[in-house]
Design a binder for these strands. Structure first.
Lengths: 144, 144
DNA sequence: ATACCTGCAAATGTTTTGCGACTAA
DNA sequence: TTAGTCGCAAAACATTTGCAGGTAT
C-alpha cells in the first residue's frame, strides 16, 4: 500500500498554509502512514523515537494535529481516555468494534444504522454534523 | 418525581458494602437525583457547595463513583473530555443527541439500531458488553 | 533575514490519591 | 474503638503551550 498520494497531500497542505517541511514531521507522517493501526500518541512516540531519539512528545501532538487538519488522519476518542489516530485518506466513514480486553479495533460500516440516525435527528429537528458509534465487547479470542 | 426508591437503593448499597452514611453523600445524592440533567462534576460541585460550602471536589468524585457502582448513575463520556453523570435507575437504555452549540442533551432510543449492532457484533464473533452512540449536531434553536 | 519549528519544561484541565483529622457505627 | 470518611493538597495523566535556540525558505 503506497503512501505517496498522502505524502503529496501533506506537502500541498504545508505549502498552502505557508508552513515549512521538516525532518521530524516527515518521519512522524511516515511512521503513522505505514502503520495500519489505531495508534495512541504514546505508541507513535515510541516508534518514532527509535528512528529519531531526540523527538519530543509535543512534536508528535503538533504533527498529528496538522495531519488531522490535512484530513489524512482522524482523532478517535474512546472510553479509556486516550486519543488514538487512524488513517482518513481514502477511507470510507466507519465506526468501531473494540475489544476491551486486547484493544483490537475492527472497522465496521452500516448504511442502515446511518440512515436510522438521520431519521432520529430529523425527527428531533437536529442538523447532524457527526456521530460516534463504538461497540465494546470481547473478541473471539478473548471470550474464552 | 420521587427519589425515595433511589435513596433506599443507595442506603442498601452502603449497608451491603459495609460503608457508612454521611451528610455529604446524602447531600450530593439528593442534588444529583433532583436534577434531571446530565451534570458534570463541576456543575455538581457548584450546586452542592451552595448548601455545604466546605465540600471538596474529591468527595463529589468519590460519591459519584459509588452511585455508579450502585447503578443509580451512569458516567457519560462525550467528546469534550468532561465526564457527565446521568440517572440510571428506572431509565431504559438510551443514546444521545447532543447540540454542539448549546450542549443540550436529548435522550434517544432505537431498538432497530440496537438490533443492527448485535447483528454486526455477531458477524464479527464479538460478545457485546456495551456501546456508545452519540449524535452531534445543531438543535432547532441553534441552526439559525 | 524572517518566519516557522523543535525540544524542553512548565502549565493545563480533569480526575485520583495519600494523609491526618474527624465521625458513624 | 475501629473502620470508614472528609477536605486538602499533591499526584497522576494526557495534552497543550511558552520559550530560547535552531532551521527552512
Amino acid at each position: 500500500m503506497s503512501i505517496e498520494k498522502e505524502q503529496e497531500i501533506f506537502a500541498d497542505f504545508i505549502r498552502s498554509k505557508k508552513l515549512k517541511r521538516s525532518e521530524q514531521r516527515q518521519l512522524i507522517m511516515e511512521v503513522f502512514l505505514k502503520t495500519e493501526k489505531h495508534l495512541t500518541a504514546e505508541e507513535l512516540y515510541d516508534m518514532v523515537k527509535k528512528k529519531n531519539p531526540s523527538i519530543g512528545y509535543a512534536t508528535i501532538y503538533r504533527t498529528m494535529k496538522l495531519l488531522t487538519e490535512a484530513e489524512l488522519c482522524r482523532e478517535l476518542l474512546v472510553d479509556d481516555g486516550v486519543t488514538r489516530y487512524e488513517h482518513l485518506y481514502d477511507h470510507k466513514h466507519h465506526d468501531h468494534l473494540i475489544c476491551t480486553e486486547c484493544k483490537t479495533f475492527i472497522e465496521i460500516e452500516s448504511p442502515e444504522i446511518e440512515a436510522l440516525q438521520e431519521k432520529i435527528a430529523k425527527k428531533n429537528g437536529f442538523l447532524l454534523t457527526k456521530h460516534r458509534l463504538d461497540l465494546y465487547g470481547l473478541c473471539r479470542n478473548c471470550r474464552s
